[in-house]
Design a protein around this nucleic acid. Sequence first.
DNA 1: TTAATAGTTGAGCAATTATTCAACAGTTAG
DNA 2: CTAACTGTTGAATAATTGCTCAACTATTAA
Lengths: 117, 117
Amino acid sequence: MNRLPMCEEECVHESAVAATKCGMLEEGEYLDLADLFKLFGDPTRLMILHALEQQELCVCDLAALLNLTKSAVSHQLKGLRLANLVKFRRDGQNVYYALADGHVRSIIDIGLEHLHE
Amino acid sequence: MNRLPMCEEECVHESAVAATKCGMLEEGEYLDLADLFKLFGDPTRLMILHALEQQELCVCDLAALLNLTKSAVSHQLKGLRLANLVKFRRDGQNVYYALADGHVRSIIDIGLEHLHE
DNA sequence: TTAATAGTTGAGCAATTATTCAACAGTTAG
DNA sequence: CTAACTGTTGAATAATTGCTCAACTATTAA
């Protein structure tokens, strides 16, 4: 996000850049989008999300499934909660987590498709 | 990826965990998938990808469009290249980059859909 | 009430990463 | 050839981040 030296302005296809600039989103959109995709950029969170694709699970289940501490799982779930990727309900001592909507599955599926082609 | 203390094994819904475990992928898949999504987890790379959704551009164009140095753009493009998200062709002094396939657009679109709902 | 279990949270540490800088390679023009 | 330009690369730095640890809250049972 720094200012450009003049020489970098000279070598550009100006009309192409101008046209592309019109189609760009506001900077905040890219920041929000990046924060969302960062959540998919960690194997632990991907495993949590993929597990929850299959069924609702409590924190302890996820910890046992993935060989992690409850604390580590809870920290990751917090990020997923704040991004509205998972929802939760308390039942007695347990807190059960589930996917909030179908976007998680869609994104993971496209990612796997890309890897396997 | 540490070993669990015994107490964490006791509080688990064992059949749910066992069933979920069967549906999980191999660990390497989650690592690869995370590496892929990490590329979407940075605003600069997202802007590069979104610009290339609109048209093929050279490194200098991207640098001017995004107010970055050519070096910064080139570094980011390297990651995108290694993940087969972008392709490139040289024409004289310029190297033109374009999206490699439709997965980038699909993933970004779903991400935006999630943010805006 | 006390004890036990499930879950959350904040601080701190180790590892990852985005950018800058400087040097280098490839192409074109004179 | 040299000079100018586009683009790449490696090292270094600054910022981010995932996990652990310890302390805490909440619910249940005795």
